[in-house]
Design a protein around this nucleic acid. Sequence first.
DNA 1: CCATGATCATTA
DNA 2: TAATGATCATGG
Length: 206
Amino acid sequence: MKIITRQVAINNLKKYIGKDLRSLALKYKITTYETGKQNKGWKGLILERLAGLENNISKAPNGLSWELKSVSFHNKKEILTPKETMAITMINPEELKQHSFFESHCWAKLKSIIFCAVMWHGQNAEKAELIKVVSLDFLETDELIKEIKADYDFIRNKLKTKGFKSLTGKDGKWIQARTKGAGHGSTSRAFYARTSLVKKIFETAK
DNA sequence: CCATGATCATTA
DNA sequence: TAATGATCATGG
């Protein structure tokens, strides 16, 4: 199995800028909403394949690898703006208690990331154009990272003092601990990047 | 309009 | 069954 470096993945993805991702999803046999049910994750899955990741990378936070993330954008006034927050990684309460920010999966994923901006065409997204691919390397000394670390520490401290259940999406300036689960009462939590952070990342990367 | 909290399809 | 990819829906 060949190793796809970040640069290779970016080059692969850039070839698809401006293309309609849904027709590509069909080609790669990825369910979108064909069955009458919406697969909310299909955009991310197709992007992973386009990048060259034919092998599974779904779980396991293999810190050795880079992360591929996609974000929906929509036009607000004349400005292209992130429509939603972006899931970064699941929160494991035990690991969160033991690991500092720079030891966390959250940081490991954030620091070498590839962002894909995807145009959002309304509910039940019938199409989705890839509009931009950027990569970014964070430095531990970046001002932004310091602030993100402060958010992480805040959330971590709250976990210690008030418990996992007390965590809420209201916490954090740049990142947040949102609920994310299978639904029906089963809830776990994950780190999310707020839209303002997503926006800043795109501004920084260009 | 925006943010938070809830939910869905798929896979290991 | 739970984690991963995310978006949907409700309340403020």
